[in-house]
Amino acid sequence: MPRLDYFLVAESVSIDKDRSTLSIFHVCDAWQDRPPLLIPELVAVSSWTMEPEDMGQDFQATLKIRLPGKQERPDLELHSINFTADHRRQRTYHFVRGLRIEEPGEVEFRILLNGQHKASHYAWVIADEEKA
């Protein structure tokens, strides 16, 4: 099974096509605003290192988002990213646009590989009642 190198949720990423290097900007820790808040864009990045026995096999990376408090849909499961292990390292990117969070609290982003939960990234929504 591929080994997870890291899983992070951030505001944006940049990939240098020539060097194949990844830069991650503004890792999501917390949002301070008056709920409900709409997060225009974030990206969940996971990096997987293949083991020799993984080569040629198919895998699915699935992102789940657990939202705090009472929400119409507290758990979101986004479509999987499928990949075939043919390179030593596979990076997957779940770009999420328009995430709406109704209440303050902890947001959990979970990454699964072939249905197995591998890691979580936590961020918090902090209510800022002073904001209009």
Partner: peptide
């Protein structure tokens, strides 16, 4: 040796 693959999810 690294491959990238992604999807954009536009919610709502």
């Amino acid at each position: 040796l690294t491959k990238d693959r992604g999807k954009v999810f536009v919610l709502g």
